Simulated assay, not measured.
Amino acid sequence: MTAAAQWKKSSFSGGGEGNDCVEVADLRSRIAVRDSKAPTRATLTFPPAAFTTFLEALKSPHPSPR
């Protein structure tokens, strides 16, 4: 799965080298996510609808901690 997938690095990479981020691949029926610092380790996959819901939740404003 990971060899044939076209991985895209997050545009919100941290640090000067952009190494502190995740990579995402569209596998048609699933969305795959992996750590860019350890690409050969575990890969998480999600149904597209669940991944979209997750991204929308990240974009929504969250209350500030007290």
Rank of each mutant, 00 (worst) to 15 (best):
N19W: 03
D26Y: 07
A25R: 11
F12S: 04
A25F: 02
K8N: 15
N19A: 08
Q6V: 15
L27I: 05
A3T: 07
N19V: 04
G16I: 07
S13W: 04
E17T: 14
V24D: 00
R28Q: 09
S10F: 06
A4M: 09
S11K: 05
K9I: 10
R30C: 02
R30N: 05
E23G: 04
E17G: 14
G15S: 02
K9T: 14
A5K: 06
E23P: 03
R28Y: 02
A3K: 11
C21T: 15
R34G: 04
Q6E: 15
A3N: 10
R34I: 13
A5P: 03
S11C: 07
K9Y: 01
W7G: 10
S11F: 05
V33R: 00
D26M: 08
K8E: 15
W7P: 06
R30E: 14
K8F: 15
F12D: 12
R34W: 07
F12Q: 07
G15M: 01
A25G: 12
R28A: 12
G14I: 06
D26W: 08
S11Y: 05
V33Y: 01
G14E: 03
V22P: 06
S11P: 12
L27R: 03
E23H: 08
R28C: 02
G14C: 04
L27M: 09
